[in-house]
Simulated assay, not measured.
Amino acid sequence: MSFIQYIARIQFGLESRLTIPHELELAGIRRPLIVADRGLEATGVLARAVEAIEGSHYPRFLDVPTPPTEEAVLAGLARYRAEGCDGVLAIGGGSAMDAGKAIALLATHQGPLVRFLARTGGSASIGRLAPIVAVPTTAGTGSEIGRGASVTLDDGEKGVFLSPQLVPVAAVCDPELTIGLPPRLTAATGIDAFTHAFEAFTSAAYNPPADAIALDAIARIRAMLPRAVSQGGDLEVRSEVMMGATEAAMTTWKGLGATHALSMPFDDLGLHHGTVVGVVLPHTVRSLRRAVPAERFERLCAALDSSPDGLEDDLLAFARSLGLPGGLAELGVDRGFLPTAAAIAETTPFNQTVPRRLSTAEYLQIAEAAW
């Protein structure tokens, strides 16, 4: 038996941000808490995102760090309750959207957040949330239509939360809101989206619709992301990358894999998630080649115009073309941390959806190669 679900409303295209008032109304949200960050406010992107509702003076919570923390979520929850809010309007990258999801979760559930961790079965305790409308300003995380959220807990763990209830009721994807994203962040968020589709396709879960979407996303992002990095003001290119990221998010119902499992302990060090993902991805190919059926592996390579024997080198070249770091050492990772990272990777929810579960020793081999 397979579980196949696609449930989010998506408004996509230039000026789709003007549909936000309509989506709030459809969701039954009369007084949303706007969840974003100070950087988005400083660049003017937040003002552009909410221009259609600017006169409403909705309350805001802008103290969202990257990555989002439990402390920040509780501060946002206090603002939500003090302002009498009845829903969340999350605007930004993955941090803002994940924080918005956690605020909506605690607004309707008794905490603490640790109760709802996926790794301990907490997903079953997640019921209906306060409604969320999500507006991405990057083309990468897919949190705007995804069933997951990640928040760093008070004990330092990067907590992963998974439930269909965490899917926002609507996503408003306006490529114009990504125009000001710097090249490095364009590359890092874009390769994160690419990896969502890559790892979803290689997952053993049975979901042919997701597989078809994943292959299109892989080809689309591979072709257009380097242009988005070098030609960030091109709206057509930005639209193509955002569509690829949206497609990639649709595929993650199949689950992710070794790259995301191994990224989690490095995320806990404060490193940018997408950057780590881009560095690690090529070095997971050897484990995939042993676990993914040859026919599927060939279909994956065809989408990338690569060969089974040359895929690792092609992915390394792709990362280099985006200006990503050459290894974890370049990011300042101490080699002595690698065994700890490998042990954590084995325990993550993502190691449950790899084509074949990997051991700590296998994750250490990948980490050493990526270092």
Rank of each mutant, 00 (worst) to 15 (best):
Y80R: 02
R9W: 07
E312W: 07
T189L: 01
L14P: 12
R115L: 00
A219N: 08
G274I: 04
W371Y: 11
G140W: 07
A245W: 03
P293F: 06
M242D: 07
G156H: 08
G87S: 00
L225E: 11
T252C: 09
A27M: 00
V151H: 09
R286Q: 15
M242A: 11
I20V: 15
G327T: 07
S125K: 14
L338H: 10
T141M: 01
G244I: 10
V333I: 02
G148Y: 13
Q5N: 15
S203L: 03
G55R: 01
D234T: 13
P67M: 08
R79N: 07
T108C: 09
P65R: 00
T353R: 05
A291K: 06
L62C: 10
R81N: 11
S150A: 15
P208L: 00
M242Y: 10
A212Y: 06
P208Y: 08
R227T: 12
I53W: 05
Q110R: 13
D314Y: 03
S306H: 07
A261T: 11
I91W: 03
G255E: 14
I132D: 05
A171E: 01
A47P: 03
M264I: 15
I366L: 13
A124W: 03
V169S: 12
V279L: 03
K158V: 02
A47N: 06
I4T: 14
I29S: 02
V292W: 12
E346F: 04
P308C: 04
